[in-house]
Amino acid sequence: MEAKARPSVNPNIANPATLEKETTRQGVEALKDISFGSIAGIAGKIVEYPFDTVKVRLQSQPDHLPLRYTGPLDCFRQSVKQDGFRGLYRGVSAPFAGAAAETACLFFSYRVAQEVLRTAGGLKAGDALPLGSLVAAGAMSGSVTSVVLTPIELVKCRMQVPLQSTMDPTLPRNAGLSTRAVSPFAVIGDVYRREGLSGFWRGQMGTFLRETGGTAAWFGSYEAITLSFKTRLQLAQPSRSLQDIELPLPQQLVSGAVAGMSYNFIFYPADTIKSKIQTGELSAHGVRPTFMQVGRALWRTHGLKGLYRGCGITVARSAPSSALIFTIVENLKRAFAS
């Protein structure tokens, strides 16, 4: 009798030593994503936080009263006059932890999403993905990160805004917190007492839309600009592959800066609505306003300009912050390459 041919077996899958090695590699890469992302996130937050405070205060002005601030510079001037420059760092303790968690989660989930897309496309580990797939991986990363980020941003926004309610007694108090200095624990206790555990995810829809679309633009534009720079450098070094080419520091910074501006501008209205939901009161019946209700009210009162209130200062501060984040992560990965 003719012997039956044995089915072919992929030795890379069947070999326990290979599987163990791959598992270890994935664990090391995950640790790098979390560690490097945390360091970069904190560094970026130090740069951007005063601008973020001004942005949130501009976004959170009541619609039914005359605007307190004529623009970012006026908001900055009034805030410093009222509470000093230190007041612009109000609530920074929570965002430091949040920035570390957010950036670590973004880079970790972005790498995992790329692995998922490679597997789905029949590619091997390390194979380059087309730009469209990288954009999709960015969207997947942002959607996951939004769940972690919403409670952190709610606490941050509540700590940044109370200053407004103390400067003008005619303004409504923000979520019952109107003292000049509010600790994260006071905000957490107030939210839990008023709305329970689900209250920490107030504004989740706005965060989800901003992070899903914004992160797709963030990673997508970074990869596109980086690829463009590498392609030009390859013309002078045709023997080298794109993966082997290292960008000079100025080009790394430009790629990160463009990514930051893309992230903030395109989906900025979702962030404005999110901030108003998170810093506003519940209705008289204790019902949370929906994303669409707040968006329609803002559009009726101030139009498109109201949805982009504070956008200029946000885009401006995102350029150096994002440039710093990507440059730190990429250079740390290169320094600790296994």
Score class of each variant (00 low, 15 high):
31 L>F: 12
239 S>L: 05
126 G>Q: 11
306 G>Q: 07
71 G>Q: 14
219 F>R: 11
179 T>H: 11
167 M>Q: 08
64 H>K: 13
36 F>H: 09
77 R>K: 13
118 R>I: 11
20 E>T: 12
245 I>F: 13
246 E>K: 02
23 T>G: 06
184 P>Y: 01
96 F>R: 01
335 A>T: 09
178 S>I: 10
293 Q>G: 09
109 S>P: 05
185 F>D: 05
305 K>T: 04
183 S>D: 02
235 L>W: 11
275 S>Q: 08
292 M>C: 07
2 E>H: 05
256 G>N: 04
65 L>Q: 15
282 L>M: 08
122 G>A: 04
29 E>T: 01
317 R>Y: 06
275 S>V: 04
186 A>G: 09
259 A>H: 04
150 T>H: 04
19 L>I: 14
62 P>Q: 11
169 P>H: 09
299 W>R: 02
69 Y>D: 10
216 A>C: 08
175 A>E: 12
190 D>T: 07
238 P>A: 13
13 I>C: 02
268 Y>D: 09
269 P>K: 14
55 K>A: 06
299 W>Y: 14
275 S>E: 08
82 Q>S: 13
303 G>K: 01
330 E>D: 11
323 A>V: 10
166 T>H: 09
186 A>F: 05
39 I>P: 00
67 L>M: 10
167 M>I: 08
157 C>P: 03
75 C>H: 05
3 A>W: 03
287 V>K: 13
220 G>K: 01
161 V>R: 12
131 L>C: 10
249 L>S: 04
213 G>T: 01
199 G>I: 05
148 V>I: 15
253 L>Y: 09
147 V>A: 14
7 P>G: 02
181 A>W: 15
94 A>E: 08
32 K>V: 01
22 E>R: 12
160 Q>L: 11
166 T>R: 14
138 G>K: 05
256 G>Y: 06
13 I>E: 14
12 N>C: 05
184 P>Q: 09
151 P>A: 06
177 L>D: 06
61 Q>F: 04
326 F>H: 15
318 S>R: 09
20 E>I: 04
224 A>R: 10
51 F>G: 05
117 L>K: 00
182 V>K: 05
19 L>F: 07
252 Q>T: 06
186 A>P: 01
56 V>I: 15
335 A>H: 03
295 G>Y: 10
158 R>T: 07
150 T>E: 04
115 E>Q: 12
148 V>F: 15
219 F>E: 07
221 S>D: 00
51 F>H: 01
172 P>N: 04
97 A>Q: 02
314 T>G: 02
230 K>T: 04
254 V>N: 04
